[in-house]
Amino acid sequence: MESFGSFRRKFSPWNDPTAKPFISFENIVKKFDDVTVVDNLSLNIFNREFFALLGASGSGKSTLLRMLAGFEEPTSGRIMLDGQDLRGIPPYKRPVNMMFQSYALFPHMTVEANIAFGLKQDGMAKSEIEDRVAEMLKLVKLEKYSKRKPHQLSGGQRQRVALARAVAKRPKVLLLDEPLGALDKKLREETQFELMDLQMKLGLTFVVVTHDQEEAMTMADRIAVMDKGQIMQVATPAEVYEAPSSKFVADFIGNVNIMAGEVTHYANGEAEIHCAADNLSIRTLTKKELSVGQQVWYAVRPEKITISREAPDDIAVNALRGELWDIAYFGDMNVFHVRMTNGRTFKVASMNAMRKTDDPLGYDEQVWVSFENNAGMVLVD
């Protein structure tokens, strides 16, 4: 039997020009009175994909999910699901189910009764309901808790009950609206992997709405980064992080140092960018076609930067001198804030790969920050 990991490595229908989208948002506009919350948005999602809509509050991600569920109708445009136009189809007749952040469990019902509720509403035979509930309890590893009520469960257990109830009807698509927001950090991290495994076992399409970047980066096959009702980039987590399409995406995803500059030299994929405000010239490699005099941004992630007391030996690297202003210790890594003479603060992340506690860098020390010419990204938008 092929492993989930093997399947995930090969799964990329968005790269296949012959693959047909399972869900299509076509030129969707949604207005509430005079306010446009989704602005002429088009998006394709493929069967069995774990897809994340990621954005800040007010970006339109939850509205998009609610339109797919049928709780809202688009002002214009159409939504297609498995070849069917969803316009006018009420929520209870759509082959989708939704799991809410609050879980919305019935407090007076047992775990098994909560899971069975939707099946009873659909008129399924009693024996079939019992079999399906048993299957769902086993799937979410709650067989021993079937007779308990929600208040007798932990937050993680309630989350799994809500998930079991949502998939019990075997929808074509499961919609998850901030599904892990009520869990503590450690449980949230554990549940992310449980959701990924569950999605693979069920073979369903999952669409999750979240404002949590780590959550989206961990679980999703692809991410749509949203802002003001529009999609800024759709790509895999690695592509969104390592090759953002714009300054907005680079700044929104993770930590980053961004500098505005002007291209002073470009030839054969090598560029020099002068950042006047930082009194700094950066040498970089880039796949973008640039022209001398072009205004760009240069972005470099904190973990791509080296911090040291001594100047780097390699004169080819980009190096700056500054004062160590702040230090944050996270156990697995240190985060340093280095203040330059011009007032800019560079964020530097250093992994604690070894148990090294002797002679650590300290506050107010003069240090060097340096990065290779392939460490950063040139952004033109």
Rank of each mutant, 00 (worst) to 15 (best):
F252N: 06
D251G: 13
L175D: 02
Q213D: 06
Q233I: 05
Q230T: 15
A220Q: 01
E262M: 10
A238T: 12
L204A: 08
L175F: 14
I231A: 09
L187C: 10
Y241G: 10
P179G: 02
D184Y: 03
V225S: 08
M232S: 11
M232G: 12
F206L: 04
T191Y: 15
L174M: 09
T264N: 11
D197W: 09
H265A: 10
E262I: 07
Q230Y: 07
L183Q: 01
L174Q: 09
T218L: 06
V249W: 12
A235Y: 01
K172G: 09
S245P: 08
L195R: 05
K186M: 13
A238W: 06
R188S: 01
E194M: 06
V209H: 14
R222K: 15
I223F: 00
N257K: 09
G181P: 12
I231M: 04
I253K: 00
I253P: 02
L183P: 06
F206E: 01
A182N: 09
Q213G: 11
L180P: 07
E194Q: 15
T236E: 01
K185S: 12
E178L: 09
S245W: 03
M200A: 15
L198E: 06
D177T: 00
A220T: 01
G203Y: 00
K185R: 12
L176H: 13
K185T: 02
I258L: 14
V240W: 05
D227L: 11
L176C: 10
E178V: 01
Q192S: 13
K228H: 10
D212M: 12
D184E: 08
P179K: 07
F248K: 14
M200H: 14
K247P: 12
A238D: 15
D221M: 00
V208Y: 14
L180R: 05
F248Y: 15
L187H: 12
E215L: 05
L187T: 08
F248H: 06
V225K: 05
L183E: 06
E189V: 12
F248C: 09
K185P: 03
L204D: 03
S246K: 04
D197K: 11
M259S: 06
L175H: 13
E239K: 10
T264D: 09
M226L: 14
G181W: 11
I253L: 05
T218K: 04
A224W: 11
T210K: 07
T205Y: 04
A238M: 14
D184T: 00
P237H: 05
M217S: 05
V240K: 03
M226T: 09
L202W: 01
T264Y: 12
F252E: 06
L176S: 13
V256P: 02
V256H: 03
I231S: 02
D212Y: 07
L187R: 07
I223W: 00
V256F: 03
G261H: 01
D212G: 12
S245N: 10
D177G: 04
M226W: 13
L187P: 01
L198F: 11
F252Y: 10
A224R: 04
M219H: 05
A250I: 04
L204G: 05
Q233V: 09
V240H: 04
L204M: 11
E189Q: 14
V263W: 02
Y241D: 14
M232I: 11
M196V: 15
